[in-house]
Design a binder for these strands. Structure first.
Lengths: 289, 289
DNA sequence: TCGTTCTCGGAACATCTGTTACAGCATCGT
DNA sequence: ACGATGCTGTAACAGATGTTCCGAGAACGA
């Protein structure tokens, strides 16, 4: 959706603008093109600058008048509405995947990561997603999530969501005592969400084997080479790792997490809404906002 | 409520209009909505009527002013641009939510999220990305990151990476004392990475204003409605929020984080590699793996 | 045919728009 | 440290905009 010449022109030449003009550019790009179709004063307010700065911005773009600038915006809009297929005119998808071109950091990242997200989510078998959602939607079960170096933050992210829509969800504590306490009660009423990416952590495998033995359910989020935990897991959700640098990307995995949350919310329906309301009310009452 | 309420309203009530007003309506529908965003006189010419007729047309639609009519048109346009996928589900929010059953969960999530990632990364001006990378690659500066309810985990994620490739990076501590300690030293040698999404947190604005006053640099990661922090930020990186449920997605923002890290690694080159080697060695030596 | 009603456009009006000039301010280089 | 340069906001300006009023004309029914 970037065949629009004006927006592109702004993005390219943003460095030449002054800081005030840059604010205008940002405000315009943030809600394009409508912000540019309002009056000068409104756009100025939106950007937090004065009216003349907006005019200087238009001048710098090469327009003599503000009306002329608006006319260009309108023409562009009219063309776009006429031929909606032109959106794909600038083939971004054909760029090399996985390799980072520093000149076009944004573009190559866009191509690599969006493709990884798409492949991941379409690549996961329906049954697996379904099963994972069913387990996470079972409010009789407690949910415990854990991850490694980086994936730990996604465990937290998932739990933060689940806390709000269903409750009874925690991340596996760090401290040995707390951890032992939690695992002592582990049983068939629990589902463990384990995020394990290479280099796979042996600790995760021990954990998974242990709780599986006690008939707890295990959901595994991993990369496409499949952590050894997959041997004991009830559900396996593999993700692509389309990486931009030495590090693998966790973006597709985060997408899976959000899809899971969306599925849980849908399954729980009114239950989730009620829980959420209660959650918010409690937050307000205790001043936790 | 179909794709565009105003256009529909016109089509339905076309019979109530006078013949002159009808010509205006046709001209407007012929090139919708751009024709309505021009001046009264231009629309009048386009329709072959006089200016007052156009105003009567707007009045008949229930608008007190012509500007008010244009404002509605703009709002409608903004909404439509905001969620290009919702054009199909025709804005029935509840039904759209209901369509997210596990059967289509994977597909719709794939489409929504990968598109959001792509739009986000191609939509961010190169200048902003470069500026952010430049700031984060300056090892003379300390990096401090902070976020809100959910985005906090991304602040952690970013810092985890930066710790390994450049060091001198922390998340803003939770405890008031530690926080005060850190902020006491804040100055031109620092860059604050603030993640602020709606509902925007006033605390972030205060923080940003405070550190900006002391000449620290501020990098803002926000949604497309731009947190108020954007007023004082040196770099603004907006992201799409293509959401699957009641929650906005943070997947695109995570993609931005990874792109930033990739940029920093590239900029630092051998310096990053050496740092990483040292980091690994230290981890092994102290048994921190 | 006449009179009523509705519709429409011309012209004057008030407002708000975009615009410009100017002065204060920060930033940078010397 | 101190001018020079560039950037920004305030205030005043001219023009265009949307708006209103009023009279001319058309449509319709009696």
């Amino acid at each position: 959706m970037n065949s629009s010449s004006i927006a592109d022109s702004i993005r390219t030449r943003l460095g030449d603008f002054s800081s005030g003009e840059r604010r205008v550019a940002r405000a315009l790009l943030a809600s394009y093109p409508t912000a540019g179709l309002e009056t000068v004063r409104l756009l100025a307010e939106r950007a937090g600058v004065s009216a003349p700065t907006v005019l200087r911005f238009a001048n710098r773009l090469g327009f003599a008048n503000y009306p002329e600038f608006q006319r260009s915006l309108l023409e562009e809009l009219a063309e776009r509405d006429q031929s909606p297929l032109n959106a794909y005119s600038s083939g971004v998808g054909e760029e090399a995947r996985g390799r980072l071109d520093p000149e076009h950091l944004g573009r190559s990242a866009a191509a690599t990561l969006s493709e990884a997200v798409e492949e991941t989510l379409t690549g996961i078998p329906r049954y697996e997603l379904d099963a994972a959602v069913r387990l996470l939607s079972d409010t009789d079960r407690r949910v415990v999530a854990c991850g490694g170096r980086f994936s730990r933050v996604l465990a937290e992210y998932l739990v933060l969501h689940l806390m709000q829509v269903r409750g009874r969800s925690t991340v596996l504590p760090d401290s040995p005592v707390e951890r032992a306490d939690l695992l002592s009660d582990a049983g068939r009423r629990d589902v463990f969400v384990i995020l394990d990416f290479r280099r796979y952590e042996e600790e995760h495998l021990r954990l998974a084997e242990g709780v599986a033995e006690r008939e707890a359910k295990v959901v595994l989020l991993t990369d496409r080479w499949l952590s050894p935990v997959s041997g004991v897991a009830d559900v396996v959700l593999p993700a692509q790792v389309g990486s931009l640098s030495a590090y693998d990307s966790l973006v597709p995995t985060m997408a899976v997490c959000e899809a899971l949350v969306a599925g849980v919310i849908h399954t729980l329906g009114d239950g989730a809404e009620e829980r959420l309301r209660r959650f918010e009310e409690t937050s307000r009452r205790f001043g936790l906002l």
